[in-house]
Design a protein around this nucleic acid. Structure first.
Length: 489
RNA sequence: GGUCGGUUUGCCGAGUGGCUAGGCGCUGGUCUGCAAAACCAGUUACAGCGGUUCGAAUCCGCUACCGACCUCCA
């Protein structure tokens, strides 16, 4: 089995063999959320995609430093807004300190990520904590001659830069097309060219989030933080930079330009982008207002949701599509994922009591290598999951005596599911967190024992009355040969 | 308008020039006092029209429709 992982590099538009700059170390950076609102399904996809990559790389024995930032400053509403950023706008609205808003939504984001079994990154830097580094980078870019100051604001000179460097390579754009298609917005008169983007913005008097600098009291432009923080923690050259496809242009394109202008060469070897979640065929996003937050999914409290969905169901739903394909939300699809996940998890539990035999009637090695191949093919989780479901059929066959397995193969099969389902895919059985759950459980067990006794006395009236009573309470009884299982609906 | 991508069976979604993706649903069956659950089996599609090929859903062209980005966005 080789260790060759292939990943799709947006920069070259090809799947490439992953070769770290300094093996076994891997530097991974992914653009995290802007914390001015609750996280929605799209944020989950971004986080899960790069969590999956983080887990996959670790599974392949790489030593990974994963940096995922928190944007807590500097995202301009648009250039015409003259100094009011999103954080600040929300803060005014709710009469809170900007940092309080940031803290609030950051905490909630962390809770959501925990629920989704997204591992904490190695470092989670915040833009507001790296103003010095960002200013440093602005100076470097100015020294190199690729930025200019106007009225206390500093802009990147895209036109000048593009004369000696390719601009638009990552997003596949041509500078001429960009020039002819860029909308002329109000308040851009300061810029030499409509394509130029802000590195530093002078704050207007009403703007409370501000820092001092040699140019003005102001705040950094929104592309700058990722350039500054990624290189601070991962070095001038690092392996992988990820984010949502919607960040490709202009955000990541600008990042490349900033790094080349400031540091002399590009910093990122592989660019990876996850696709969007759609809802009724349209991208789910804050700006469109058509999003469903993760909390709403978990509670079922949204008009479009027919029920609550467990975090692991959401995770499985996302992993059942390839990260570069769009994924359309629907209740039907989510319910399908819920059922499928339960079936998979049940099979893994059923793996435990299986007893080994002298020979195997199933080809475990083949299954292992198919799974391995799927995962190393640009993290093809839908195919991996399809293979794992093939194995589920085998496990059921083993449980029912239709298949046999040697102890060696059984061990392989158990680690296969443990490694892929739990460690790499990061799936888990939805756990009951209600403290009353334990007592409920004991009570139901006790009642069911009475019913089993009644059944063995052929007192089916009593048995049925007990079952009907439990059904009314929302407890489904599932008879086995030697008793009964149950679940709360 | 420009750039890029997509259109797969009831739904969600993989994939490849010739060989059953998978899940859900549905249908049938096994098990069961009955039911449910579980398990097993069945369920063969690739927008339209041309072309290349022994053979295309898979390659090429055109058409239709959809989406993303071009302004903050995961």
């Amino acid at each position: 089995m080789t260790n060759d992982l292939f990943i799709y590099n947006t920069l070259t538009r090809k799947k490439e063999k992953f070769e770290p700059i300094d093996p076994p170390f891997v530097g991974l950076y992914a653009c995290g959320p802007t914390v001015y609102g609750d996280a929605h399904l799209g944020h989950a996809r971004q986080a899960i995609t790069f969590d999956l990559l983080f887990r996959t790389l670790r599974y392949l024995d790489y030593r990974v430093r994963y940096v995922r930032n928190i944007t807590d400053v500097g995202h301009l509403e648009n250039d015409a807004d003259e100094g009011e950023d999103k954080i600040l706008k929300k803060a005014k609205l709710e009469s809170l300190e900007p940092m309080e808003v940031v803290q609030h939504f950051m905490n909630r984001y962390h809770e959501n990520m925990h629920d989704l079994n997204v591992l904490p990154p190695s470092i989670e830097p915040r833009a507001s904590g790296h103003i010095i580094e960002q200013q440093e980078l602005i100076r470097k870019i100015m020294e190199a001659g690729y930025a200019y100051e106007v009225n206390g604001s500093v802009y990147f000179d895209v036109n000048h830069y593009s004369k000696s460097h390719p601009y638009g390579q990552l997003s596949g754009r041509k500078i001429e097309d960009l020039i002819s298609n860029t909308r002329a917005l109000d308040g851009q008169s300061e810029k030499r060219n409509a394509l130029d983007f802000a590195l530093w913005k002078k704050a207007d008097p009403s703007h409370i989030m501000r820092w001092t600098s040699e140019w003005s009291e102001g705040y950094p432009g929104w592309h700058l933080e990722c350039s500054a923080m990624s290189t601070k923690y991962l070095g001038m050259q690092f392996d992988i930079h990820g984010g949502g496809m919607d960040l490709l242009f202009p955000h990541h394109e600008c990042e490349i330009a900033q790094n080349v202008a400031g540091y002399g060469k590009p910093s990122v070897k592989y660019w990876m982008h996850n696709n969007m979640i759609t809802i009724n065929g349209k991208k789910m996003g804050r700006s469109l207002g058509n999003f469903i937050t993760l909390d709403q999914f978990f509670s079922g409290d949204h008009q479009m949701l027919e029920q609550a969905y467990a975090p692991s169901t959401i995770r499985f739903f996302i992993l059942q599509a390839h990260y570069r394909s769009p994924l359309d939300f629907s209740n039907e699809a989510l319910q399908g994922s819920e059922k499928g996940l339960m079936r998979m998890l049940k099979a893994i539990e059923d793996l435990e009591p299986i007893i080994a035999a002298a020979s195997s009637s199933i080809d475990v090695d083949d299954l292992v290598s198919r799974c391995d191949k799927a995962m190393k093919d640009d993290m093809n989780t839908p195919v991996l999951i399809a293979h794992l479901f093939d194995g589920v059929k085998w496990i059921n066959g083993l449980s029912e005596g239709r298949h046999t397995i040697t102890s060696e193969d059984l061990e392989k099969l158990r680690s296969l599911y443990h490694d892929y389902v739990y460690s790499v895919l990061g799936l888990s059985r939805p756990e009951a967190s209600d403290p009353a759950e334990g007592i409920t459980s004991d009570l139901v067990e006790m009642i069911l024992q009475l019913r089993t006794d009644a059944k063995s006395n052929r007192d089916f009236d009593t048995a049925d009355r007990i079952r009907d009573g439990l059904t009314t309470l929302g407890i489904t009884v599932k008879d086995r040969k030697d008793g009964a299982d149950w679940e709360i609906n």
